[in-house]
Design a protein around this nucleic acid. Structure first.
Ligand SMILES: NC(=O)c1ccc[n+]([C@@H]2O[C@H](COP(=O)([O-])OP(=O)(O)OC[C@H]3O[C@@H](n4cnc5c(N)ncnc54)[C@H](O)[C@@H]3O)[C@@H](O)[C@H]2O)c1
Ligand SMILES: NC(=O)c1ccc[n+]([C@@H]2O[C@H](COP(=O)([O-])OP(=O)(O)OC[C@H]3O[C@@H](n4cnc5c(N)ncnc54)[C@H](O)[C@@H]3O)[C@@H](O)[C@H]2O)c1
Lengths: 213, 213
DNA sequence: CCGCTCTCGGTACCCGGTTATCGATTCTAC
DNA sequence: GTAGAATCGATAACCGGGTACCGAGAGCGG
């Protein structure tokens, strides 16, 4: 599955939640399509690939779509995950509700700042990063999120992988080097901002050249 | 330009920075290619599209690449931008150095929490969101970042657009409704985490089915 | 100086993602 | 009940991003 396709599924899910909150029970392929900038054809193929069946003149049942897309993404499970680096970004992540929405259960916070160790955020204690490996092994945690300075991320990632972590969600602006089989998902905030910069420049160029061409 | 292609350019840039710090002056298309999981052919076409010329048996000059890719993304400028919502996420963004890296200059912070108004973060004062429109109009600010609760984002976006903002970087988990011509770049953190969940599930399936097929 | 090798630049080809099309199905209206 | 409209499911056609290939030029070794 290509990244673009995966993103479409996640966007369907977001739109479905909104539709459901509006009291809708079904949705047509064209409705989903216009929001994504593709055709109804593409949407029907996406859904067909998940063995989701719709009904003519009625569309797809929203509840079915939600369950099947969620299953494919495996976001109905509660995989334990640890968060390392309880700075501003880390705290924002702890307090957000994205973990359960994405199939994770945030079970441990680690930092190496003595001022933070022992405090708690959203009911979870901040533990000393020194005991990180032991805790992760004992709890069998296989996923971790890195919200650390870029120059600390690689060393911490190495320790986590040694302790048994096999999937990393990385916010540091660095290309982590990990063994084969270890998944790294980089959340590159600055690339989102760069994309905005590019789109602004492109729009301004288009306006300057005139809308006729 | 497709999103995938744009992302490749940004990744080239990240890798170039690393190579430059290692003292390299040139780079070959194949070197850039392996990091991106594409062929040298694709990289050469990407660079050729920017009118970047390399030399046989030598590669491309890193300095040239950096300048031309940066120009295309327009990240060498300093577009003024305002940030609304100085919670944990907002504070992390203020303290990061992504703004200048992506062609922006963070010039104003807004919040509506009386406890925050008047304090300052990284030297910038937190202003009262009540005076947001006037300030943005007076300063001619055309970009803004939303780090707000989802249920407040639409209302604030409306006010910003009315005040002249034409590009939004949105962190709230909501599909903003804006007039045509206004750019919205959504930074959907939870989708990154969902993508991780999907990749973990896929890997585990692949392992279960055995590596032979 | 002369090949040899490496890498670029351009072109042709290919593949898979996207769209278009059409028959099949089901709901609505009268 | 029947006609008609709407929408699905499947298949075929299209298109553009990606790859393969080849000729050309630049450095290297002898
Ligand atoms: N990719 C981006 O665009 C982007 C944007 C914003 C932030 N970030 C990254 O996210 C990181 C976190 O941001 P922040 O604002 O929360 O930074 P921060 O400095 O507030 O927090 C970093 C935390 O990590 C802790 N830490 C440092 N070394 C550690 C170690 N070895 N083990 C355990 N904990 C350790 C520190 O004590 C601190 O609490 C930043 O360093 C930045 O690189 C990236
Ligand atoms: N998309 C994601 O996956 C994701 C992840 C984390 C956070 N977020 C979003 O980012 C938002 C910010 O996160 P946070 O942890 O900093 O939240 P927060 O609650 O700490 O901060 C929100 C800030 O916005 C301010 N605010 C509220 N209404 C306002 C208004 N009308 N005008 C001006 N300021 C206003 C509040 O005073 C507060 O300081 C969250 O609400 C969340 O939706 C999204």
């Amino acid at each position: 599955m290509h990244r673009e396709t995966l993103q479409r599924y996640m966007n369907y899910l977001l739109l479905l939640t909104k539709l459901k909150s509006e009291g809708r029970a079904t949705v047509t392929s064209d409705e989903l399509a216009v929001r994504e900038g593709v055709t109804g054809s593409r949407v029907r193929q996406d859904l067909s690939a998940l063995r989701i069946l719709g009904k003519p003149r009625q569309g797809y049942r929203i509840a079915d779509l939600e369950i099947l897309i969620s299953s494919m993404l495996d976001i109905l499970s509660a995989k334990p995950v640890a968060l390392v680096g309880i700075g501003n970004l880390g705290r924002a992540l702890v307090l957000s509700d994205i973990w359960s929405h994405a199939g994770f259960d945030l079970v441990a916070l680690f930092d190496n700042d003595p001022a933070l160790i022992g405090t708690s955020v959203a009911g979870l204690p901040v533990r000393d990063a020194a005991i990180m490996e032991r805790f992760i092994q004992e709890q069998g945690i296989e996923s971790a999120c890195l919200a650390l300075p870029a120059d600390k991320a690689q060393a911490v990632a190495d320790r986590l992988v040694d302790a048994g972590v096999r999937a990393l969600w990385n916010f540091a602006l660095i290309d982590l080097d990990v063994p084969a089989g270890i998944i790294v998902e980089n959340q590159r905030l600055e690339q989102g901002l760069m994309a905005l910069s590019f789109r602004i420049a492109k729009r301004n160029q288009d306006i300057a050249r005139g809308p006729q061409d």
